[in-house]
Design a binder for these strands. Structure first.
Lengths: 211, 211
DNA sequence: AGTTCAGTGATGCGT
DNA sequence: ACGCATCGCTGAACT
């Protein structure tokens, strides 16, 4: 069957693939699964791992020239040389429904905010996604001593990057003359992050979805 | 053709999908492309976008019970109810070759380090991936005035996170009694990051792969 | 369009 | 195994 570049399809073929754009790459000749979607998305998948070997984001344009598939999008281009087509299947009525996800960071954040007294007993005011010039604070608490408690929520294991992020916020509140304390709320935390936190007025609050 | 769960294959079918694990999700019934790889990877792809609607990472085990595909991996599980199989194709001799990528951040870093005098004219010593307790510095330069120059390299547009990262390093060198200055080296930088950098002794070095 | 951050992030490299 | 930074990250929300 002839490849129709205007149709969504998957193609299993012996190919060579090259890419040039933000970066550049080559992929040695072999059998790969090539998936084309109606929004222009193109995926070149290898026989293992989650990520495609090459891809184009939505909006790409696919063309067929002799034995070459060429996908272009802005300054990016994929070239696929077709040596042998093993199978070709078009996909009609392909669903574009979205996955509904729960147990996200936003949910965890809201749970903590709703039961904030379990974490900061003398809390007076609670703000969620409090805006500052250096980013939004997940939860901002003002306690009975007028201390600004900056809480950064992480759904997985918190690392040094979380400490850096908090310190951008605490520094900001210091600069505008507030008393401040930092908190990381997460199910887990890396050893280095915990150590770094201890030396910089940041406390760890153990928190997960089961609460 | 009957589905063989021990084979790599792609399957286009009318299905219902649910997931539970680190998060949880549901996907409404419809036609999706399901890809199974020999390392256990499972992908449920919708008709648009780059990312799969659901997936299992390498190492998952796939089983078929009546009209249900079940993939399990540690504490994670995907359930696929098969209402109607539209097409099924097995993929033999599927290549697992890796893509060779160039123009990466590491390349840019090495280029800058090799021609450091173009950026910091009075450089005396240059270290690449210099280790500190708060992470590795991309490029550390000691200049003629014994100032420790911390250079953070970004291959794309640098943002506030780059500033935070640098400040972890500069603070460390301050604590051990060094004179220090921060640099971001990148092709582009966000407006907020540039502003934040200006106020915190961080300079921006414009750098890209063309040099 | 630009900026920021979450993600079932994944992936690779180091310890 | 944990810890960390990169990624052609993608995707979404907000400005």
């Amino acid at each position: 069957m002839q490849i129709r570049v205007e149709q969504p399809f998957s193609l299993y073929a012996d190919v060579d693939v090259t890419y040039d754009g933000r970066a550049a790459s080559t992929l040695e000749r072999g059998n790969y699964l090539i998936v084309h979607k109606s929004d222009g998305t193109l995926l070149v998948m290898g026989g293992d791992k989650y990520k495609p070997r090459n891809y184009q984001a939505p909006g790409a344009i696919l063309k067929l020239h002799n034995n070459q598939l060429v996908s272009t999008r802005k300054d990016e281009r994929i070239n696929i040389i077709l040596h042998n087509i093993i199978s070709y299947t078009e996909h009609h009525d392909w669903s574009v429904a979205r996955t509904k996800v729960t147990k996200t960071e936003a949910e965890l954040r809201d749970k903590i905010a709703a039961s904030i007294k379990d974490y900061i007993p003398n809390a007076i005011e609670v703000f969620v996604e409090f805006q500052t010039p250096v980013g939004n604070v997940d939860i901002l608490v003002i306690d009975a001593n007028n201390v600004y408690c900056v809480i950064e929520v992480k759904r997985g294991r918190a690392s040094l990057a979380a400490c850096s992020q908090i310190r951008r916020y605490t520094e900001y509140f210091n600069e505008i003359g507030r008393q401040v304390k930092g908190y990381i709320a997460s199910p887990q935390i890396s050893k280095n992050a915990l150590k770094h936190a201890g030396g910089h007025n940041i406390a760890w609050l153990k928190a997960d979805h089961s609460i």
